[in-house]
Nucleic acid binder design. Structure first.
Lengths: 102, 102
DNA sequence: TCGCTTGTTCGAGTATTATCGAACTATCGA
DNA sequence: TCGATAGTTCGATAATACTCGAACAAGCGA
């Protein structure tokens, strides 16, 4: 069973978060997770090869935005909303709201 | 008199804004302008050569975050707070708040 | 165990960005 | 007009990230 590196809540860095969200594919992934709760990588497909998507998931993971948990053959992603809210209260909500109107 | 390109309010793009703010030097510039109101480029010096700073000012300008106005030999920068608030209500405030606690 | 599915990792090529010195532009004051 | 000041632009180099195919790893069902 594969394990992933997820930063601790207190180690989540603002500039890293902003950078991770500065990519259209990645912010769309986050927006989808915010709506749906959880989703496998396949469900979050953005029309790119799996290797490209995996790259983006890693960027989000290492920024502390999502948590990926193996579940059978698929990997479930979830938004680390509570952790991010604790680290940067209100930030995620306003970015998601901005993403809707963008 | 030199003129600068500043995007129109409705053309401000979220991912560009997030990217511009994903650099420690640039988010510090924005935080300083949020506190002080306006400042020349020289006042916002971050210990880097002028050419490097100019590069960062341009990134912020083209993202729509700051407005630069020539004033004599110096150039005054100001945060485009009202414009950004109109385009993405609440976004700037929460990012600046996050930057304080980071 | 074999084959299928899901997703990661690796490697190479490409593109974008950061950094800084040097040259340039524009403005102001003497 | 000369010199000083404030920033920009250019050009080169280095670093970083994106993209994708190919190979790999792990779990599940037959």
């Amino acid at each position: 069973m594969r394990t992933y590196k997820h930063p601790k809540t207190e180690d989540i860095d603002l500039t890293r978060v902003l950078y991770a969200l500065s990519d259209p594919i990645r912010i769309e992934i986050v927006a989808t997770l915010a709506r749906q709760g959880t989703a496998s990588c396949a469900e979050l497909d953005a029309g790119r090869p799996k290797s490209s998507m995996s790259h983006h998931f890693r960027a989000l993971r290492e920024a502390g935005l999502i948590r990926t948990t193996p579940e059978g053959t698929s990997h479930i992603n979830e938004l680390r909303r509570a952790d991010i809210d604790r680290r940067f209260p209100g930030l995620l909500k306003s970015i998601l709201k901005a993403a809707e109107s963008a």
